[in-house]
Design a protein around this nucleic acid. Structure first.
Length: 467
RNA sequence: GUGGCCAUGGUGCAACGGUUAGCACAGCGGGUUGUGGUCCCGCUGAUAUGGGUUCGAUUCCCAUUGGCCACCCCA
């Protein structure tokens, strides 16, 4: 390229300082050394992808189509209706639902003040918005249960790595107005089936956190257990002890897990109703043939769960801390906590990037749905006119057809046809225009035959086995 | 948020403190006039950004940005 800046005597800091915007007394975010409006980038420099963000290129789309199709089929079969809620909500929505001391709220949210000074956040998970919508739109007046699903972007301000991005996509379901344990099981079943349909074997970890009463009893006991052992646990756990003791069970530090292994199990503190609920969920899972493991240490990172919680991990992942493919549970108090009438509810969220990652590691490739049946090639202006006509004839006959009308050389058109994987190419040149015919070339064998122009669509359908 | 590894054309790799940064694949154009997927030839195209060390850096150092890995946690 052109001469790079071999010598740049003294102009370095000067240009930058000059373009600094007249320092508005901009609103005081915690610590924001960056100017509200950054200086314009150098002309010609290439804009960069923000950390943890990704483009989904055409070559990737077949995976996404495939996954979305499965979601649609599954949710339709089980009677779920789609809901879409905003990406941006008031920060308080998430703080109130996930819990002030959850990691999600403490360090993973994209939070900022908008121009009106409102504190808003990009949604880090799907449930709170759906719960809000349920209440806002009076869905409790409709016949219950309300079964909803969503597919969309979630944002978390984290250090990215494979299968972890700052923007990721989740498929989630939420069911309102049904407290039956069979409903918990249905939710787990759907998560399990989703992955099964994608050819991914999963392991379901399940636990119960009980209702508020049993949890309170348990927490008292748990803290009593940890109190004399506080010197043996990590700094994070000391903080958890004070603010969010349930998460003590979650720690992966060797010292902490050693302490944890002697800790009381919450299942032993469930009251009869909660215990019965759990048993009936497990029974239903048995009936439905969903393999699961009862994991007394599973607590999940959100405060709103009651009773059932579960998480899915890849079945063949031997690592100590496999990446979760999804999780969820019951949250019978959240609607009321948001000012709605008491409403039992449960749901899950599943990570689509991780699902696709699993598909790739297992080398399950979805079919390319856009492979054309036939490519229409044309030579010359008269032929192009006929080719347009042929294209539409074929298309309305339900044949996957494609063409590049801007190219003229037959060679390049055949090349394109080949690259697209077309089974046949219809060739229309001057000769064919005069004869009222079209040349059909089998791209596999190279065999060609002359077909009457008006019968072409019919012939091709026959060749394709479409009748 | 913590620790570590890394950064060369669209992709995958190579090389060196010093004249034209090499290869493969892809892309584009050819191998004459209406025939692709094989073959042959040619062309385009890169040292992430900003500083520093040096006579000279793409190579060494620092920062920034981004990626990956292990944590934390989660999808």
């Amino acid at each position: 390229m052109a001469s790079k800046n071999t010598k740049k005597p003294a102009s370095k800091s000067a240009s930058k300082a000059a373009s600094k915007p007249a320092a508005k007394p901009a609103s005081k975010a915690a610590a924001a050394p960056k100017p509200a409006v950054p200086p314009a980038p150098k002309p010609g420099s290439t804009p960069q992808l923000l950390r943890g963000m990704r483009d989904t290129l055409p070559s990737e789309q077949k995976y996404w189509h495939f996954v979305r199709r499965r979601i649609e089929n599954l949710t339709r079969a089980y009677g779920y209706e789609r809901i879409d809620t905003p990406l941006l909500e008031e920060t308080g929505l998430f703080v109130r639902s996930a819990g002030k001391y959850s990691d999600l709220v403490e360090k993973e949210m994209f939070t900022f003040l908008d121009k009106g000074g409102d504190n808003v956040s990009l949604r880090p998970e799907g449930s709170p918005g759906v719960v809000r919508a349920y209440i806002n739109h009076g869905m409790f007046t409709l016949p219950q249960p309300i079964k909803l699903y969503y597919v969309g972007s979630m944002f978390r301000y984290e250090r990215p790595q494979a299968g972890r991005y700052r923007e990721h996509h989740q498929f989630g379901i939420e069911v309102f107005g049904d407290g039956n344990p069979a409903m918990d099981a249905e939710v787990v079943l759907l998560a399990y089936l989703f992955y099964k349909e994608l050819g991914i074997k999963t392991l379901v970890n399940i636990n119960s956190l009980g209702c508020q009463q049993c949890r309170q009893n348990y927490l008292t006991e748990l803290m009593a257990y940890y109190k004399p052992k506080r010197s043996h646990i990590c700094e994070d756990c000391k903080r958890r002890y004070a603010k969010n003791p349930l998460r003590l069970l979650d720690c992966k530090e060797p010292d902490c897990t050693a302490v944890r292994d002697g800790a009381p199990h919450i299942v032993d503190f469930l009251d009869d109703e909660c215990k019965n609920h759990l048993m009936r969920v497990l029974e239903s899972l048995d009936e439905m043939g969903v393999p699961y493991v009862l994991n007394p240490h599973l607590v999940r990172g959100l405060d709103y769960y009651t009773r059932t919680v579960f998480e899915l991990t890849p079945a063949d992942d031997q690592s100590q801390t496999p990446q979760a493919l999804g999780g969820g549970g019951r949250y019978d108090n959240l609607v009321e906590q948001f000012g709605g009438r008491p409403t039992p509810a449960c749901g899950f969220g599943l990570g689509l990037e991780r699902a696709i990652l699993q598909m790739k590691t297992q080398e399950t490739e979805p079919p390319d749905e856009f492979r054309p049946d036939i490519f229409v090639a044309q030579l010359g202006d008269n032929a192009r006119r006929k080719a347009f006509q042929m294209f539409e004839d074929l298309r309305s006959a339900g044949i996957m057809v494609t063409a590049t009308f801007s190219k003229n050389a037959l060679k390049s058109q055949l090349e394109t046809a080949n690259r697209l994987g077309a089974r046949y190419t219809a060739i229309i040149g001057q000769k064919e225009v005069l004869d009222g015919t079209v040349l059909i070339r089998d791209m596999e064998s190279g065999m060609q035959e002359i077909v009457d122009f008006n019968k072409a669509a019919h012939e091709i359908r026959k060749k394709l086995g479409k009748g």
